[in-house]
């Protein structure tokens, strides 16, 4: 486990490395979830951890999400730092009560006497051709809940650094893993000091328009920016990274230069993070905006069947159409 070299890792392995290093560094760090031990998780993200750290610290729990999160809260009260895995996005709802009415509020209602350093890892998002409940994007539900942090990496380095930071955080973190990108490789420096993951990151510079994305759509946004470049349009891409708190200031600085914003996510447009960003940018950049903020999200329907998910999801063409629309103002 040499930590001073650059490794080329897929996101899944970067996450695994983050958990491995956190388990090694702190004996109170625990992993818990369905099938995460012997099997290494249905996506193999926790592979090998049980062998190294034992069944007491890498727990194959009984099958109950409310039980997993509820017991994680109790373990945190006892001084542990549990990292829970929810097997798929659509299966987090049985634990919704424990997350929103308990985990998010106990620090507040105990007047700050109880901190709950609990991480809830959720593989999320679509385009994996799966059956229902395996492709959802529930981030806005959690972002709307005060007391939770919500974050999502888009590349291997962030996957490593952000998960380390999530585990080190004294506050509960909903950690959304873009499952269709689990095998996307990138350079990872495990010694890199933790970045400030409450901050968004400009991942491509441009002058004509700002395109904000997060998670699995960051590579799509970058590809759209590349395609727009061929038409002579210079698009700046911002990876939001932190969903709550949302780093509006970085987007504001970008839009102050470009005057235009397109924001995209897989989750339904209505009530989503795009609306939140649009409202904030509409207020802060009112006199600098050349066009209304455009949202490109999922439609207002339950996530559809795999055969038509391409039509549901934001893709390069939908982003280029939105870029056109913005620049036509």
């Amino acid at each position: 486990m040499s930590t001073h070299e650059i490794e080329n890792l897929p996101i899944a392995k970067a996450l695994n490395a983050a958990m491995d290093d956190a388990l090694a560094a702190d004996p109170t760090v625990l992993m818990m979830g369905e099938d995460i031990g012997t099997l290494g998780g249905v996506f193999r993200v926790t592979q090998g951890l049980k062998e190294t750290y034992g069944a007491d610290r890498v727990m194959d729990t009984p099958l109950g999400e409310a039980g997993i999160v509820g017991t994680a809260i109790g373990l945190a009260m006892r001084g542990y730092r549990p990292v829970c895995e929810i097997q798929f996005d659509g299966f987090v709802y049985p634990s919704f009560n424990q997350i929103t009415s308990q985990l998010a509020k106990i620090h507040f209602r105990s007047d700050g006497r109880i901190s709950l350093p609990v991480v809830i890892r959720i593989p999320y998002g679509g385009n994996i051709g799966s059956i229902e409940h395996h492709s959802e994007s529930p981030e806005a539900l959690f972002a709307h809940t005060a007391g939770l942090r919500v974050m999502t990496p888009s590349n291997a380095q962030d996957a490593y650094s952000m998960l380390r930071e999530a585990i080190a955080s004294s506050d509960p973190v909903i950690f959304l893993e873009p499952k269709r990108r689990y095998w996307l490789k990138g350079e990872v420096d495990r010694s890199a000091s933790t970045t400030d993951t409450q901050r968004a990151q400009v991942v491509r510079e441009g002058q004509d328009l700002t395109l904000a994305a997060y998670g699995a759509l960051v590579p799509v946004a970058l590809a759209a920016a590349e395609a727009a470049q061929e038409d002579g349009r210079s698009v700046e891409v911002v990876d939001l990274r932190s969903i709550s708190p949302l780093d509006v200031a970085t987007v504001e600085a970008s839009v102050s230069r470009t005057g235009r914003l397109v924001v995209t996510h897989e989750a339904p447009t209505f009530g989503g993070m795009g609306g939140e960003l649009a409202a904030e940018i509409g207020t802060r950049c009112f006199y600098r905006l050349e066009a209304p903020v455009i949202r490109v999200g999922g439609y207002h329907m339950p996530y559809p069947v795999a055969a038509v998910e391409e039509d549901y999801l934001p893709n390069i063409d939908r982003l280029l159409e939105a870029i056109d629309r913005s620049l036509s103002h």
Binding site: A66, V69, G70, T71, M77, R78, G79, Q98, S101
Partner: peptide, 13 residues
């Protein structure tokens, strides 16, 4: 809601 939390606490003990 306190019941699984108590069980988790006991698991910690």
């Amino acid at each position: 809601a306190q019941i699984p939390q108590a069980v988790g606490y006991a698991m910690g003990q």
